[in-house]
Amino acid sequence: MIRTLARPALLLLAQMVLTLVLAPLLPGIVNKVKALFAGRVGPPVFQLYYDLARLLRKGAVFSRTTTGVFLAGPAASVAVPFTAALLVPMGGATAPVSFAGDAVVLAYLFGVARFFVVLAALDTGSAFEGMGAAREVTFAVLAEPALFMGLATLARLSGGPSLAPMLTAAGQGWRAAGGPLALVLTAWVIVFLVENCRIPFDDPNTHLELTMIHEAMVLDHSGPPLAAVLYGASLKLWVLGALVVKLCLPHRGTWWIDWPAFLGGMTLLACGVGVVESIMARLRMRRVSQALIAAVVSGTFGFLLLLLA
């Protein structure tokens, strides 16, 4: 009894501790890579940890226009990736919580975060934040089907709508179904970059509000709420990154190979994001939806290719 329970408990503990502790490292790696490309020393890899500690000590300033919803945005942007992290397999072949249909729950959980973040933005009555909110809901209309077409492809591969078997089957299936998986990977990388507001779709560092999506929505957050937003963003980067990494990573079945391989994959992904951000310019707003349409098409092609093969 204890032995059968020990493994899932250990998995749960390892996965959640690693996610919660290591997630803020990813933006640090991205920024370090960007600094190297630009020939700068750049901020330390642990910069986000320092920022979070500093923000948590500060007080917050709230607009007199805002209501309780204003804090639901930051709260949801932490709670949603936290819950989602339980559904995604990371080091092992299973996730701490896994059931038929968890893939749909994962997608809709991020919808919850979007709902509250957008409302928190509208709560301020600011034009800039309204602008960011409008863009966020618009691009999601194309990001969701791209994600779901990829999920459909993986479900075909694994034979069911549960995320852990789906991603494990994908990791093992590159030899048999490399073409469809490459198309799904393309779609999901685009979704990953859009959802995490990275270049070439959005820029997490710019201060030109007119061009931003996500950053424009959180302009009025300060102190601990801002810390929640930043920490939540790094958790989201980690969880959605785990989807992309697990899609490519074969599963060996021994934890001392699988976990380091997963963490190595996440590091590589962060470096990849850094490289893309260094060598590409931000796309014009109109191009973002075109890239997302490309992602939908790519995911659909992947599904059809696998179905007909």
């Binding site: 948590l56 709230f62 600011s126 009025d220 709420p225 929640a228």
Partner: peptide
């Protein structure tokens, strides 16, 4: 985050 010390102002924007 609600319990953190806070002050009220106009929307920064």
């Amino acid at each position: 985050i609600r319990k953190s010390p806070s002050s009220r102002s106009i929307t920064w924007d």
